[in-house]
Design a protein around this nucleic acid. Structure first.
Length: 469
RNA sequence: GCACAGGUGGCAGAGUGGUUCAUGCAGCGGUCUGCAAAACCGCGGACGGGGGUUCAAUUCCCUCCCUGUGCUCCA
């Protein structure tokens, strides 16, 4: 397979350091406020990447963090009159609910910055010893000019950059691009005892510490939103490589933004929708499918219309899934069916195309188009074949389900109790009896009543499928 | 200003040096069905402007225009 690497600005073959194993680290959100659709995109993008890697047989160690200490955390906690840990706890619970609704598999580990202060202190010590960092009254800083190729990944130029000059350099930094590894904590702020006094960590050091702690000195994949490339990832590279003398990550993957009216959705522009707001109107699978319609690196324009379209597609996939499941349970003749054999063969071809699309830098739009073609063939066969025994459908059904699961769709099927499905079977039998007697009133009455209970019936070629709305 | 992305049919959005120029939604015309829902079949329609390379460019090169993003906290 091949992936786009921000470090080389090109697509290149993917080779993990250790055969069959992928070590992946993705920067997670700062937990000071509820997650919005932009966060959802990032989480979904890397969830898909993880699933695709697993689909291709890799063992994936996936670490994604929560930033639970920084300026925004402190400010927000002060505003609300609660402690930083209290705020973190509440928001983490909230975003984890969101992520679960979106079908995001839990990473192997979800560490928090505050759990790894010791690791950070270790790294900062090492950087000071090697001359890459210096201590000032206001904190400990990374000496950017000492690190060769600083900012190479994003073509950042130390001299030409137009970064805003700070008034009189109150932080006493040697160079305006130097960044804080540790910040002196002010009165009333959270702090940790360090060799340099009472400090709290700067933003970038946490990811170096956590990724190194769990995944080692060199990662296979480091990911995050495009907005993290500079300065966050550039700084991570600088401090990590200065510390270890080794390559920090062999691949850097960055997902594109969610936009509104072509502009980036962001907290500062106040043009965002929270995941919770979207989930009031659309379900998690719909939002996920909406995200998959665009390639993960490209901008994705958020709109109600786009979500409605995704909802239609979602229903199409779901209807076929339910029809298929109903077929596999059907008892019929064990006659050999040409059409079904052919469909099974095509299924193999479709899955190959599907895999090929995903192997090419996780091209989900193309994978979806293959899936649509498969669905069309399945539906075509369903309307022709009525009497086959369910066993003939098993292979096709399994393949279809496997493809959906690589995309993380329809994994949160509501549990249906034995009693409930037994009752449904009975009800459908009674209705079928009524239909065969041309008692349409009774048949329609059952269908209407079920609909008002949120259960939809569909009669297709002698098989009635029920589903929750 | 510097850097980086991108400009494809009514909309969303892949892809490719050339043959039937994905896929979905919407539109139009059919089919199936007791009805409903779902589904199926068919149709039209596109590659920002200019120049170049080539037998042939939407696809490669140059240039211009436009949009967005980063250079400050941000997924």
């Amino acid at each position: 397979m091949q992936v786009y690497d921000t470090q080389t600005h090109s697509i290149r073959p993917f080779k993990p350091l250790e055969k069959g194993i992928v070590r992946m680290y993705v920067c997670g959100p700062t937990v000071y406020d509820n997650a919005h659709v932009g966060h959802a995109r990032s989480q979904i993008a890397f969830d898909i990447i993880r699933r695709v890697l697993e689909y291709f047989g890799y063992k994936v160690y996936y670490v994604s963090n929560y930033t639970d200490i920084d300026d925004k955390m402190i400010n927000r906690a002060n505003e609300e009159g609660i402690s930083v840990p209290e705020l973190a706890k509440r928001i983490i619970r909230s975003v984890e609910d969101d992520f679960r609704s979106l079908g995001i598999l839990p990473p192997t580990i979800r560490p928090k910055a505050t759990e790894h202060i010791d690791d950070m202190v270790e790294i900062v010590k090492g950087l000071i010893d090697k001359g890459y960092a210096y201590v000032k009254e206001s904190g400990v800083y990374f000496r950017v000019q000492k690190f060769e190729n600083y900012g190479k990944m994003t073509n950042f130029n130390l001299e030409e950059s137009q970064s805003v000059e700070e008034d009189g350099n109150p932080l006493e930094k040697e160079h305006r691009a130097d960044f804080a590894l540790m910040k002196k904590s002010k009165e009333g702020e959270p702090y940790w005892e360090t060799p340099w006094g009472r400090m709290r960590p700067g933003w970038h050091i946490e990811c170096s510490a956590m990724s190194m702690h769990y995944l080692g000195e060199t990662l296979d994949i480091h990911g995050g939103g495009q907005d993290l490339a500079f300065p966050h990832h550039v700084n991570e590279i600088a401090q990590s490589e200065a510390y270890t003398g080794k390559k920090f990550s062999n691949y850097f993957l960055h997902n594109g933004f969610v936009t509104i009216n072509k502009e980036k959705m962001s907290k500062s522009l106040k043009n965002f929708f929270t995941i919770k707001e979207v989930l009031q109107r659309f379900d998690g699978d719909t939002l996920r499918l909406f995200m998959l319609q665009a390639h993960y690196r490209k901008p994705l324009e958020y709109s109600k219309e786009g979500l409605e379209e995704a909802e239609n597609q979602m229903k199409r996939f779901k209807t076929t899934l339910e029809q298929l499941v109903a077929r596999t349970q059907k008892k019929g003749h064990f006659k050999k069916s040409k059409a079904l054999e052919k469909l099974a063969e095509k299924g193999v071809m479709y899955e190959n195309q599907f895999a090929k699309a995903l192997a090419n830098d996780f091209n989900t739009p193309e994978a979806l188009s293959v899936l649509h073609s498969f669905v069309k063939d399945i539906n075509n066969t369903i309307r022709k074949e009525t009497e086959n025994d369910g066993t003939f459908w098993v292979d096709i059904s399994l393949r279809y389900k496997r493809m959906l699961s690589v995309l993380g769709l329809f994994e949160q099927t509501e549990e249906t109790s034995e009693t409930f499905s037994g009752l449904m079977d009975l009800l459908l039998q009674i209705r079928q009896q009524a239909r065969s007697e041309k008692n349409w009133e009774m048949a329609d009455h059952i269908r209407d009543q079920l609909k008002s209970l949120g259960i939809v019936l569909e009669d297709v070629k002698g098989t009635t499928v029920w589903k929750r709305q």
